[in-house]
Nucleic acid binder design. Structure first.
Lengths: 228, 228
DNA sequence: GTCTATAGAACGATAGAC
DNA sequence: GTCTATCGTTCTATAGAC
């Protein structure tokens, strides 16, 4: 069929690495496992990528760059619709979460393995991953933090940063896959219906970000203090 | 001084492993790094623990068992105070989060390294870790899910399971440490004040769990639909 | 661009002296 | 209970033939 074998091998390696990173974590995956899964030779990895670190970076970059472009487009639309007024909160959160979640229902994107890779990355101690994430997310963080500030003008910026951090963690954990969910629900729930999960996730994070402010030294542990 | 050298070596190994697991992740840490950090011999690890897997299990078990006892005590107190009535939500969340968070301010507990280990564990693909977590958390999940059901009787049990899952993820990410927080806040915030972080975390999760229910097919993406 | 062969290092684990 | 020495394996990476 005269297709370019160079591109094919490179893609086979990226796809195999992505699947294994999703299942086992980045650090636990060796190049030998990757080449076995991709059915190529060990030397091909070094020929196409140079080193394991550069392969990791390539796996992340391939998906994150288009994801971030989509995020920016959605954020642009929200800002355009709002004019000078305050921004609506849920759509901002959705603009952050929907682009990676869309991969889950796209078989051409390796069955959405990357969503789990991305979830894992947020707590990955590996220096290559940390550095890659810093580079690939700098602009995203800036733009979304600015949007949150416009959406929640009644909250102090520090408080918004805390809550954005918590919200990112909620999303990361949900993206990692459903093992913990199966434990929590004793096997009754799974991540199958992507759209339903996404909507629940957006609703949870939005509510968290809109939580009432705590008084300065008011303790949480009011044993009877539930608001009816 | 006549202190027992057996206990000392064993503790040195556990402490060193805990610190390295917190910094690098469990999977990235080798026994040779552990024995270098603990300044003991490689054979000592196999003498005291038998294998790397059993060392991992011992590190987890040492802290999680007392943490879970404290969780149960706090939950008992909440249930006793509520009698037959509904349970207050925030104290339940606090009963789940405070016991591990307490370690952060306890220098005798290895400077709270374990809190980060625990956060990482929730998304750790390593089979030993997954199995250990399943064993050590089965009872905790059961009791806290039952408490959540009593605290949020207006929500369907399935919805509560989803939200408990999201909340556990929020907590796990916050426990992993503050690298992402520093990125989000551009270096302006850190995890320093444990009590303040805990209170913010409880408030965020409680608000998320109390989020209004979505209509069956109502889309999230209401571009203008922000509630004033 | 793809392969075989192998270098060189780090790994978990164990045997056996003390 | 602690040590040295070492086994067998696996790892990343590279050299060189085709």
């Amino acid at each position: 069929m005269a297709e370019n074998p160079q591109i094919k091998t490179k893609t086979l390696i990226l796809d195999a690495a992505e699947r294994l990173f999703a299942e086992q974590g980045i650090g636990h995956t060796s190049l030998r496992q990757v080449i076995a899964e991709a059915k190529v030779n060990i030397a091909a990895v070094h020929y196409h990528f140079g080193s394991k670190e550069q392969l990791i970076y390539a796996v992340l970059e391939r998906r994150i760059i288009p994801i971030n472009e989509e995020r920016f487009k959605m954020l642009d639309a929200i800002e355009a619709a709002a004019g000078e007024g305050p921004l609506p909160l849920e759509p901002i959160i959705e603009a952050f979460i929907r682009p990676p979640f869309r991969l889950r229902s796209n078989p051409a994107a390796n069955h959405g393995s990357f969503v789990r890779v991305m979830g894992r990355c947020m707590n990955e101690p590996n220096e290559t991953v940390q550095a890659a994430f810093g580079r690939l997310f700098g602009e995203v963080i800036k733009r979304f933090m600015a949007a949150y500030l416009r959406a929640l003008p009644e909250l102090p910026p520090e408080e918004i940063m805390w809550r954005a951090h918590f919200g990112a963690g909620t999303m990361a954990h949900a993206m990692c896959g459903g093992e913990m969910l199966k434990k929590v629900s004793q096997g009754r729930l799974d991540m199958g219906n992507g759209e339903a999960v996404l909507q629940r996730l957006v609703a949870f994070i939005a509510a968290g970000m809109r939580a009432p402010m705590l008084g300065a030294d008011e303790p949480v542990k009011t044993k009877e203090g539930k608001k009816a």
